[in-house]
Nucleic acid binder design. Structure first.
Lengths: 196, 196
DNA sequence: TCGCAATGTTTATGCTGTTAACATGCGTCT
DNA sequence: AGACGCATGTTAACAGCATAAACATTGCGA
């Protein structure tokens, strides 16, 4: 039994990592990337079925890519939150950042949301995908103004998430043209200190 | 040249309409319907390639289904708007209705948004899909309070559309559990008469 | 050094969308 | 009425896909 390095290179030299990297590159550079096993294997200079030694099936590969993307999104959100300095204004900036990141990573955001919904919760690693998303949710909720009641905080967090996610999806689906100024105006429109 | 009945039955008896109806039934009854040409043809009691006499390819079939779904959504929105009686409160009800319809027609809503974005705008019938969506947008914009400036109306309409669409997608993707009371609270949270 | 297990390849299966060639029959025109 | 034509449906075939099984290779641990 080997020590710690789980991904020790064998014949190819860590084909798993190479496949994931190539997948991430395609997700970053193309709007509708070809993530077929044959296409990936061909461009990796490897036979069509070699990837089955590292992933049980195609969905597992996509899940791994989605998880990596989710981690990057979460990290990006955390950076934006830290830079904005918290508070009401900072929270707005985080929302704008979400939309901006989505526009810059359309295929990756779509992959994340297409995969995270149908993850088998009884799988081997229940913490992988679900935990990353739970962290994202917690981050959103934690950024709400302190003076709110717990109930209102939950509703406000869901409101904020829905707003930026919906705006991002409408832009990605081509229903709304991307206009940074308009995005800013729309996202910052909500006044969370209002009544209700 | 025949008169008005464009879809006169031949051998099968209007296979095109039968295929669309079966597709709509599957979209209505299943979360991830099998809309494969072979599966549809088999259940229609027809050979696998018969549908190519009525649709140039699979995408055309899906586009036709998405268009039908879009019309139903628009009609549903119009009914909700009329019932709500316009005004600020009525507008909120329309938003709640959007989310409710999405929850009740998840596969159809997903199909609509997945197809409408990549429609070839230079196609034969440029009015079909795009026009239906333009009508939906116009309906949303027309429902904004009258006292707003044109600019603010546009931003508020996009805000409202983003909010309900994002909330619907989060529910459909399994990120948020469907809770009618919570949906109502979140959708009605925005106060459009606020400053900015 | 030997062996085993991890890695990669070859081959094969059943699915998919799609095309071409062929068959059938309703509608129309003479 | 009869024949032609075109819309419709069928059969056969092809390329691509994900995937599984059998086989080959190679590096690490005992």
């Amino acid at each position: 039994m080997p020590g710690l390095p789980v991904n020790a290179p064998y014949h190819h030299g860590d084909l798993r990592a190479a496949a994931l990297q190539m997948g991430m590159e395609r997700l970053a550079s193309q709007e509708q990337p070809d993530l077929g096993l044959r296409a990936l294997a061909r461009d990796l200079g490897v036979s069509a079925t070699a990837l089955y030694r590292h992933f049980p099936n195609k969905d597992a590969l996509l899940d791994a890519l989605a998880l990596e993307g989710l981690n990057r999104l979460g990290q990006h959100q955390a950076e934006a939150a830290a830079q904005a300095g918290g508070g009401h204004d900072g929270f707005g900036e985080v929302g704008v950042t979400y939309v901006t990141w989505a526009v810059e990573n359309p295929a990756l955001l779509r992959l994340i949301y297409s995969r995270v919904g149908q993850v088998d919760l009884a799988a081997d690693d229940p913490t992988a995908m679900g935990e990353a998303f739970r962290q994202l949710r917690a981050g959103i909720a934690a950024m709400m103004p302190d003076e709110m009641s717990k109930d209102r905080r939950a509703a406000a967090a869901l409101h904020a998430w829905s707003l930026v996610h919906g705006l991002a999806m409408l832009i990605l689906d081509g229903q709304v043209e991307y206009d940074p100024a308009m995005v800013r105006k729309v996202v910052l429109m909500t006044d969370f200190s209002a009544s209700h």
